[in-house]
């Protein structure tokens, strides 16, 4: 397996936020993790990304134990809930940031960033500062900046949470395309049921620090804990109601 998490535990004082976390992920796949606020999703991602140290357990990436490796040495990128761009750099330089750290020749950086800007449909926005970009554009720059460094693993923490429905839908499509184009392995955390189903090759459900990964989407839908059945019933009932209204009209 590409990513292997074994028995990770993370406590804050007396509170156990992540409980005996174990799961694995194949390369070039996305595991979407559904969970309510405060269930330990962000702590889990930050622990895998090295921004928090686990109290016990191990993390292996591509066969290597990275449990105690510094975050900058892991080649894992954690993407915040918000589109956190570097305010002193324009869109081009934000995307180029990770490449400039590696002393890559300037011409190669320019080519790769321009290619990324094209993939993100941001060719005409490259010189704009973050405060001149819309929410969706900022989020795309944030993606581009993470993906261009070719990370082994991308950790996305509710990346579309602050976007309106339309922009969110477009961003979901864009992320799917980018994942395919750049062969990204990722953990995609969300509290949106539809998004979890749409974005993941596999789906997990996190509750009170425990993560359950489902073998397929049917098992996920069938589990009453996930709330999918309730959702289906709700929309089903609404559709039935509308049908009745239509029949009465005619």
């Amino acid at each position: 397996m590409f990513l292997e998490i074994q028995n990770i535990v993370k406590n804050f004082g007396q509170e156990q936020v992540v409980k005996n976390l174990s799961f694995s992920l194949d390369a070039k796949k996305t595991l979407s993790i559904l969970g309510k606020s405060g269930c330990g999703k962000t702590t889990m991602l930050k622990t895998i990304g090295g921004l928090l140290s686990p109290d016990s357990g191990s993390i292996r990436l591509n066969g290597e134990d990275i449990t105690h490796k510094k975050p900058e040495k892991r080649n894992i990128v954690y993407l915040y809930q918000e589109d956190l761009l570097f305010p002193h750099l324009n869109a081009f330089e934000n995307i180029a940031f990770g490449l400039r750290l590696k002393n890559i020749p300037k011409s190669i950086i320019t080519d790769r960033v321009n290619h990324m800007l094209k993939s993100l449909e941001l060719e005409n926005q490259s010189q704009k500062m973050p405060n001149q970009l819309s929410g969706g554009q900022r989020q795309r720059v944030s993606f581009g900046r993470a993906i261009i460094t070719n990370p082994s693993l991308l950790l996305l923490d509710e990346p579309f949470g602050s976007l309106d429905a339309g922009t969110r839908h477009r961003m979901q499509g864009l992320f799917k395309n980018l994942s395919k184009e750049f062969e990204i392995s990722s953990l995609f955390v969300t509290h949106d049921l539809k998004e979890a189903v749409l974005m993941g090759d596999e789906i997990g459900f996190m509750q009170a620090g425990n993560l359950k990964v489902y073998t397929d989407k049917n098992e996920f839908i069938a589990d009453p804990e996930t709330g999918v059945e309730e959702e289906i019933k709700f929309w089903g009932a609404l559709a039935g109601l509308e049908k009745n209204v239509d029949l009465k009209k005619h």
């Binding site: 990128v77 915040y80 956190l84 570097f86 305010p87 940031f97 750290l101 460094t149």
Partner: peptide, 15 residues
């Protein structure tokens, strides 16, 4: 300016 979070982000990008 949330320099703390930006620094963590920069670290995650390899700085």
């Amino acid at each position: 300016e949330r320099v703390e979070e930006l620094s963590v982000l920069a670290q995650a990008l390899g700085a």
